[in-house]
């Protein structure tokens, strides 16, 4: 394989991995399920398959006043997720993907313990690549500065177990029970060995009817969750290993996520929204000969006052493997 092709594949693998890690972790046994990040098919590939494992470790929460509160003494709260994903490029600038998590909740308090599992909420995405990043080694003209820009639509399907199913305990919850449509924008630029990316998403939930809560039938009503905005900025450095084209890339990221107040029968529930800031680290090893990459990452919510509101504070450890079909 020519060196140029190797470089393209490396860049593509890394670009794909880079868009996976800034994804916001949003699962909590107290607050509703998880969803895997959307996938990116590299420009010169036809498909990707991805498998990753997350371990989300809970460590208190931010309250209404943005003050960090510790979890109860003797508690040990964890959620594990296996994320299965696949992406397919069906036209030069168009691709689609699907990702589905399987979730294990593991909650231990001094007076109760619970281990449950189930399917999480599924995401399907459609992406259009508005412009390509040439991933230049050196900037020779203005064209080398054009970033890669992708626009997308992402649809979250409530395939997980929500409070509105026949689940009697909040410990069983693996999904939020709502459809959500997101518009996404990804801007990324690589001037090797450096890269930077900005991922933005704005999503709106679809209002739904509810006639059951935790297994109990109730007087039917309508509920809608608030619109969700997220922004993630990441930058990374790629180190080429030897002459074979294998590489290791490291990246750091900052993510902000905010969800507005929910509403009941059209009336806003003041104080039910939340926000969260987190920092991320990721390392990806890419092997060109077999078109695969492996990665590990850490997403850290800072356990300080002011870094979030009305949301759990967690650390997410991730490992993943991805295969690219040329």
């Amino acid at each position: 394989m020519k060196q140029e092709t190797l470089s393209i594949i490396t860049a593509a693998l890394l670009a794909g991995a880079a868009t996976l890690f800034p994804a916001q972790s949003q699962a909590a046994s107290c607050c509703g399920g998880g969803s895997a990040a959307s996938l990116t098919v590299p420009k010169y590939a036809t498909a990707v398959a991805d498998l990753s494992f997350d371990a989300e470790l809970y460590d208190g929460y931010w309250n209404q006043n943005r003050k960090h509160i510790a979890d109860p003494s003797g508690s040990d709260l964890k959620q594990y997720r296996m994320n299965m994903g696949a992406g397919y490029r069906f036209a030069t600038d168009w691709q689609t993907s699907i990702s589905l998590p399987y979730i294990w909740n593991d909650n231990k308090y001094s007076g109760v313990s619970s281990q449950t599992n189930g399917l999480g909420d599924m995401t399907v995405s459609l992406t259009y690549e508005l412009s390509d990043d040439n991933s230049a080694w050196k900037v020779r003209d203005i064209g080398d500065m054009i970033p890669g820009v992708s626009l997308g639509l992402s649809f979250l399907l409530p395939t997980g177990l929500s409070p509105y199913d026949n689940q009697e305990s909040s410990f069983d919850i693996t999904g939020r029970g709502f459809y959500r449509l997101d518009g996404t924008l990804l801007i990324e630029k690589t001037i090797r060995p450096w890269n930077i990316s900005l991922a933005l998403a704005y999503g709106t939930y679809l209002e739904r009817s509810i006639n059951r809560e935790y297994g109990k039938y109730v007087e039917p009503y309508k509920k809608d969750l608030g619109d969700r905005f997220s922004a993630s900025l990441s930058t990374g450095y790629t180190y080429i290993l030897g002459t074979g084209g294998d590489s290791i890339a490291g990246s750091v990221s900052y993510t902000y996520m905010k969800e507005a107040d929910a509403s009941f029968n059209g009336k806003r529930d003041s104080g039910s929204g939340f926000d969260k800031q987190s920092l991320g680290l990721a390392v990806t090893y890419s092997n060109n000969d077999s078109n695969w990459s492996i990665r590990t990452g850490w997403n850290h919510a800072v356990k300080q006052n002011g870094w979030g509101q009305n949301f759990p504070t967690t650390n997410v450890l991730s490992v993943g493997v991805r295969y690219v079909f040329l």
Partner: peptide, 28 residues
Amino acid sequence: GLTACGDNMFPSGTDKRPVIQSGSSGSS
């Protein structure tokens, strides 16, 4: 397979509260 994912895929607004016997004891 997805249709087996529970009530969330096709939410219902039908009132399915059971009829409660007057004078009985319970949480309803």
